[in-house]
Structures are given as structure tokens and as C-alpha cells.
Amino acid sequence: MVWSCFSCIGGHQNKSQKSMNESIDYPWEIYTLKELLQATNNFNKDNKIGEGGFGSVYWGRTSKGVDIAVKRLKAMTAKAEMEFAVEVEILARVRHENLLGLRGFYAGGEERLIVYDYMPNHSLLSHLHGQLADQCLLDWKRRVNIAIGAAEGLSYLHHEAQPHIIHRDIKASNVLLNSDFEAKVADFGFAKLIPDGVSHLTTRVKGTLGYLAPEYAMWGKVAESCDVYSFGILLLEIVSGRKPLEKLPNGTKRDIVQWATPYAQTEDFDQIADPRLNQNFDVHDLKSIVTIALRCTDGNAESRPSMKQVVAWLKDGLSTKKEMPHLKNNETPHVDQDEENYEKNHTDREELGKQQFDDGGIWR
């Protein structure tokens, strides 16, 4: 594990150690604290682009003129340090155009810093619900490309990375957008490595209400199908511009699947599209994406498609106008998330708000 060598490659290196490390072909750079202080203007508040329970994210520019984002842990708790170690290890293992790139890290003394590629168009959440929502920068083509890109990144984690990786926190705030509005799946602090031959794990529940698969929320049973469920929620969020959970006037909560399913069953797909699109969308593509989303959020985990299948459906169905698989017996493929029972089973409630910045994302 990467963490096991932090003590020898962290901030307290002598020149010979640093020279030795630089001669090894690491997929990331080991920064000095001085470099990151200079890049972020001593973590100046004007450089802060996000803040959450774990700490803050700062924009910076290196001496070579490269824009970076630096995640700085707020406190050195055992939990925070473990998430730091997990994220660095996961990102050091993977390389894909739709995953947020790890540039490097610093680990020394009481500082734990992770350095990423900077994403100038911030998070998907900021465009759907945050400070950029009113600018309507996400037209239909961009939304479709973001959906496909995020699906391909997730498919890589499930089917190509070795060992396979379950993200466990797929949501709009963890999909970042580069200068061309291409999707980059981010934030691997909750990720799980799945050894070959293991179908699922039972673990402590972490994540965000509204995105959690029912079997995971209730019993902590986690598998690739949990990420598929979360991605289905994300698809509906992308095309509709609605939040995963909404509070109704009577005080009850309704999730986005419950809202969208009646429209899908009556083929009234126009009612699902984000009004900000002003009817500028492809009706066939909208129908296909919604149908895929409802298959992904099937209440039976075994009935959900794999992410490899989702990518094929998205790319093939949207480009060739093929019909997507129909919903089974025109029934709602969904099991409600019981928030009360979820919270009873969730022993660490603060995890639900993990890394929720002022716009809810890894950074704005």
C-alpha cells in the first residue's frame, strides 16, 4: 500500500532520498511543502475553491505555470489519514481520460496534501444546482458527452483496473469538468478494492443519501452494482436538472426515480427534460438515457446492467438510434430508500455530508 512508504517519501527527505525517488518512475510527484505553499500563496483564503468536513481545496499555480488543485486535510485523525492513504493509492493505480488525475502529494509532519489536475469548469453539481446553474452552460450535447465520459471512467474502474475498484460515492459533485467540459470522476476516499473472485463485500455504509443503492444503504452490502445504481441516479439528474432527493410540501421526501418513473411509463419523456434546455434535446436520446437510468436503479441488484453494458447502450443506442431494453412489465424498477432505517444502520451520520463544499463538490 502506498501509505506504507509515506514515512520514507514524505516531507522529511534528505537530498539523497529525494534524488533517489526522482530516479524512480513514479506515476505521481512527491511535492515539498514549500512548493505547495508557494503555489497556493500560503493557502490564502482567496485561493480556496472548496471546503468540507475533511478540510479545504485550494487552487494553485506551480513555478512551471501549471494550474493545480490541492486538497488539504483539516485534522490528522485516523479516519482522515486512512482516506488520504486510500485516495493516493487508488489514484496511483489508475490512469484513464475520464478519471481525475493525481499529480502528486505531500505527507509530512501534520500536513497531508493531495495534488490534482485543476478542472476549470468545476463540478457537474455546480452547473446543475450550484453557482453556475443560471448560466446554462450545459447544453444537450455536453450533457450526453458528460454522461458517456463518466460511464466510461466508472467502467474502467469496474472492469479494467486490477484489482477492480468500487467507487462508493458516485454523485454530481464528484464529476468534475475540464476546459472542454469532459467528465472526470473524482474523489476516491471511499473506494474499495475488490480482489478477483469476490462478488461483494459487507462494509460500513458511506456515501450520500439519494445516490445509495438500497441493499448498500440498509445492509452495507457493496458491489459494482451499487455504483451502477448511483450512476443511474446521476443520469436522471443530468437530463432533468433535478436533485436526487426533494422535500414535498407535506414534508415527505421523494427521490428522483419516484419522480421520473411515472413519466417514463406513460412515454411522456418531455416532462423529464430540464426546462433550462428549452426543448433543445433529442427525444430519442432522452428516452434512451432515462430507460438506461431506470434499468440501473432496479431494486434488484442482480437485475442491473454492468457499467460495460451501460457504456455500450449509451454509445451505441445514442449514435445508431437503436431501441434500449424496455422496462420489465412496465413496473417501477426501484426500491425506496427508507431514510429512518438508513440512519439507524449508519453509525457515522457525518459521512453523509463528506466533502460537501459550499456547492457540494470536491471544488467549485
Score class of each variant (00 low, 15 high):
343 E>I: 13
4 S>R: 15
16 S>G: 04
18 K>I: 08
207 G>R: 03
1 M>C: 13
192 K>N: 07
242 R>V: 01
277 L>Q: 02
359 D>M: 08
218 M>R: 13
258 Q>E: 15
92 A>G: 14
14 N>H: 12
63 S>I: 10
140 W>T: 02
251 G>K: 00
186 A>G: 04
340 E>C: 04
75 A>W: 14
189 G>I: 06
121 N>H: 04
344 K>I: 11
234 L>Y: 03
114 I>N: 02
280 N>F: 08
77 T>C: 13
320 T>C: 07
82 M>N: 15
244 P>D: 06
305 P>W: 06
205 V>M: 07
139 D>V: 04
150 A>L: 08
109 G>D: 14
19 S>A: 13
208 T>K: 00
237 E>Y: 05
233 I>N: 00
320 T>M: 12
190 F>T: 01
133 A>F: 02
115 V>T: 05
76 M>E: 14
81 E>H: 10
229 Y>P: 03
37 L>C: 12
349 R>L: 15
202 T>K: 11
305 P>L: 07
3 W>Y: 15
200 H>V: 02
301 A>M: 12
220 G>R: 05
68 I>N: 04
312 A>P: 05
217 A>W: 01
357 F>W: 13
308 K>W: 08
166 I>Y: 06
350 E>H: 11
311 V>W: 05
32 T>I: 03
261 T>L: 10
163 P>R: 06
143 R>H: 07
253 K>Q: 14
100 L>M: 07
211 Y>R: 03
148 I>K: 08
299 G>M: 00
155 S>K: 10
349 R>N: 15
113 L>G: 05
137 L>P: 08
93 R>P: 06
168 R>A: 09
196 D>V: 10
43 F>M: 11
88 V>C: 13
54 F>P: 04
216 Y>Q: 06
306 S>T: 15
260 A>T: 11
129 H>D: 09
78 A>S: 15
58 Y>E: 05
203 T>P: 03
125 L>H: 11
112 R>E: 08
132 L>E: 10
67 D>Q: 09
259 W>D: 00
78 A>L: 13
193 L>K: 07
26 Y>S: 12
318 L>E: 00
363 W>K: 05
92 A>Q: 03
334 H>S: 10
311 V>I: 06
